[in-house]
Design a binder for these strands. Structure first.
Length: 425
RNA sequence: GGAGAGAUGGCUGAGUGGCCGAAAGCGAUCGCCUGCUAAGCGAUUGUACGCCCCUUAAAGGUGUACCGCGGGUUCAAAUCCCGCUCUCUCCGCCA
């Protein structure tokens, strides 16, 4: 969420920025609620001060044996008034929160102003996308033929958008997870975390999934718990409420988790194959950084994610999301898109974002600046490093052979027990 | 699932209605002392939000809130009452 002081002082600017994101904001209600809140706060605090002072007096009088019944009666009225004001204040706070919580982050100055995905500029491309001599097939055909992906049984076990991995398919998924974790921990300086896959409402609210995006989440029946849609939620919440030491920043965590998404409103989209599942695996990178370093850290984080594709020799490109295509909490986002020859297109395989202090404010994650001794909000960043299922897709499609087999990239073979090719026999 | 105990500042831990934002100790920071280190001595040592002062900020002054969370009683709540959460111990069950 944005700083309420900043909102007060920069309304026109925020309205303009929201318009770039394709959102219209009406700040009149915000303004009136905000000034009412401050009125109430001042009055109630003044009354409390009076009550505290007089109550002290009552104690002294009683100790001396003097009569205090008159001021006690008077303070009774004051307390009633405080109670009344408190109720209105609480209601005002809630209304105000409801507004502020639904205002998205302000895009960074370097973010291109655009309407949708068509306006996202390409930052760089890597690898050779030359077509093979045969007609490349989509991964769902390859996977089913090799009997490593079973969509029918996934649907039988659960329903649409659930898949069973068999044999070397399961092995490939696991190999990728281990390869990514090893790369990021041993070469990129991240500390591995294995968090709970179910979190409470406070955690979901701190990272911005709630209250606005409840329909995207799976909620446990009868409990106020949710399946995580990404490791970002538990891993960012590790430091919820903390005041960190400046010297320990930037903090870098990497975590493997499954991710659960309701995918409401996406019916009919990507119905075939592994691209859009209700459950998928992901290795996530999360950083906590000082404000002045966060954009450097975003570049590094994105490169760390790209490195996975480079090691496997999968062609990709990096795009910078425009204002109209960015997520709610993000100030700047790079998407990494892997080349999928079977579908003759680039598909998102990672999304790397700097949230600046937007999440940190809601989650109250601060650090103490040594120079001033003051606390400041940290900047939080995260990115997929990478989405594992989609990486399987990229491998199947990029390394398929004319005979239907799939060659395993060199970097992955140690994790596959030396297997260098998956074939139907 | 049943029975009991508990939750206080960076940590340990006192505090059963007013003098408690909170004793004491530890730790930390600064200063003194010291050839160095240790010891010793002194001071400081939570967060947030208002207001005053001020060109702004800082510093300073002042007010309010916060003793797991939420509600209640009272002129007044860390302290009394109710609900919840979490932790620990014992019993049962379970991978």
């Amino acid at each position: 969420m944005l700083d309420i002081k900043y909102l007060r002082q920069n309304m026109e600017l925020v309205v303009a920025k929201m318009r770039e994101r394709g959102q219209e904001m009406n700040f009149e209600r915000f303004s009136s609620l905000d000034s009412r809140r401050r009125e109430l706060l001042q009055e109630v605090e003044q009354l409390r001060g009076e009550r505290n002072a007089v109550s002290k007096l009552v104690g002294e009088k009683k100790k001396r044996g003097d009569d205090a019944s008159e001021i006690i009666a008077r303070m009774g009225d004051v307390s009633d008034r405080i109670k009344l004001l408190d109720e209105e204040l609480k209601k005002t706070d809630e209304d105000l929160d409801a507004i502020v919580m639904t205002i998205p982050n302000i895009p960074h100055a370097s973010v291109v102003n655009g309407r949708d995905a068509n306006d996202n500029p390409v930052v760089r491309t890597w690898g050779d996308t030359a077509c093979p001599a045969f007609k490349p097939r989509p991964h769902w055909e390859i996977g089913e033929e090799l009997k490593i992906l079973d969509f029918a049984v996934g649907a039988k076990l659960t329903g649409a958008r659930f898949t069973l991995y068999r044999g070397l398919g399961a092995r490939l998924e696991r190999a990728l997870i281990n390869f990514m974790l090893d790369l990021h921990t041993t070469e990129h300086g991240y500390t591995e975390m294995l968090p709970p896959f179910i979190v409470n409402r406070d955690s979901m609210t701190a990272t911005g999934q709630l209250p606005k995006f409840a329909e995207d989440l799976f909620k446990l029946e009868g409990l106020d718990y949710f399946l995580i849609p990404t490791a970002e939620v538990p891993v960012t919440n590790i430091h919820r409420g903390d005041i960190l030491d400046e010297a320990e920043l930037p903090i870098r965590y990497v975590a493997y988790t499954p991710c659960f998404r309701a995918e409401a409103g996406s019916y009919g989209k990507d119905t075939r194959g592994l691209i859009r599942q209700h459950q998928f695996n992901k290795v996530e990178l999360v950083k906590f950084s000082k404000p002045e370093e966060s954009y450097d850290e975003l570049e590094k984080l994105t490169l760390n994610a790209e490195e996975v594709l480079k090691r496997m020799n999968v062609p990709y490109r990096v795009i910078s999301l425009c204002t109209g295509d960015m997520g709610f909490s993000s100030a700047k986002t790079y998407d990494i898109e892997a080349w999928l020859p079977g579908q003759n297109t680039y598909r998102e395989i990672s999304s790397c974002s700097n949230f600046e202090d937007f999440q940190a404010r809601r989650a109250s994650i601060r650090f103490r600046r040594e120079e001033t001794g003051k606390t400041e909000l940290v900047h939080t960043l995260n990115g997929s490093g990478l989405a594992v299922g989609r990486t399987v897709v990229a491998i199947l499609e990029n390394f398929q052979q004319a005979d239907g087999s799939v060659v395993i990239p060199d970097a992955l073979r140690p994790y596959m027990g030396g297997v260098d090719v998956i074939s139907a026999r």
